[in-house]
Design a protein around this nucleic acid. Structure first.
Lengths: 163, 163
DNA sequence: GTCGTCAATCGAATAGATTTCGGAAACATG
DNA sequence: CATGTTTCCGAAATCTATTCGATTGACGAC
């Protein structure tokens, strides 16, 4: 609504740097974007207040702490009311082993990203939280062999408007 | 050999806190886990050196910066050599609009998470980076209506062993 | 063109945090 | 019980974040 927020290239540079490494100090960011630390600090504070910078999360090596199996669940739901679906999404997202829930169009209705210790753990999660649920018609499971992620921001203005 | 990393519950508490909020100060974490700031600092340093804490990333409100459309691509690949597949995965992961690539078992071989400005942008990404590629047999696209994620660590020791 | 207004930036000062390090305490080992 | 090892603590030093008043520059009104 009121949030007609505008950003210049310095704001985007700050966002990009923090998306790549949230542990950069304000001083480092200021130097990287060519601003005084105090000015940079004001901008970051503003980005947080405006809801553009939502927070930061540490990346934990899950294999190192014993979660060596990752899976993606494709869930088909019955034709139910929106309330029931939303409720199921929320309770699913609250499961400790679930890292993300996507409500999508297409062949399946829900995509669920799950991190578990082993196959038995995975079987338990599926049978306990999905197969026993009325809303769920069917669950397909895909094992994740490997993943690659990155945290860089795409360029905001397509390929122009910057100069 | 050297990598027989062991963790106690304080290490897990630190990891959990930082996974939820990487901007917590060392002082705050120390207070939360009941340690002196210097001791807590040593533990965090060790977790980083051992490769358990991999880094931290700011969470950016992508809608606020103009990326209001998210999609998941399900990619089927031809029966090719491992090299060609790995190469394709790497180049795909390097696309700015791609946030994650998952190599999986099941109906499709690759799951690609994409963030774009609009439909035209999405169409461009797919046709340019996927449809024109020899390795790709078929791409199915799912629009993401909503997503829920959380960054809390599951309990490491199943339901026992903690006492 | 000139003035007034507003927003952004800077630099210095303060308050606060991180980081290092020697010594004490806890723990396991023989 | 003695010993070596690890972990923890507290204080000192260093560095950083944060605030604030003053300056600059851009922009619109007249």
């Amino acid at each position: 609504m009121t949030a007609e927020a505008e950003f210049d290239r310095i704001d985007f540079a700050i966002l990009g740097l923090l998306a790549k490494d949230a542990w950069l100090s304000n001083k480092q960011i200021a130097a990287a974007v060519g601003l005084a630390p105090s000015s940079c600090h004001e901008r970051i504070k503003s980005l947080r207040a405006r809801g553009v910078l939502l927070g930061a999360h540490a990346e934990v090596n899950l294999q190192a702490v014993g979660f060596s199996l990752e899976a993606v669940l494709f869930v088909q739901l019955g034709k139910l009311e929106v309330e029931a679906v939303d409720s199921f999404v929320s309770t699913t997202a609250a499961i400790a082993e679930v890292r993300g829930v996507f409500l999508v169009s297409g062949r399946s209705d829900l995509i669920v990203d799950v991190v578990v210790r082993d196959m038995q753990h995975l079987k338990m999660i599926i049978s306990e939280h999905f197969n026993q649920h009325d809303v769920v018609l069917r669950v397909e499971t895909s094992i994740v062999f490997s993943r690659q992620q990155h945290y860089t921001l795409p360029r905001p203005w397509s390929t122009a408007k910057t100069g």
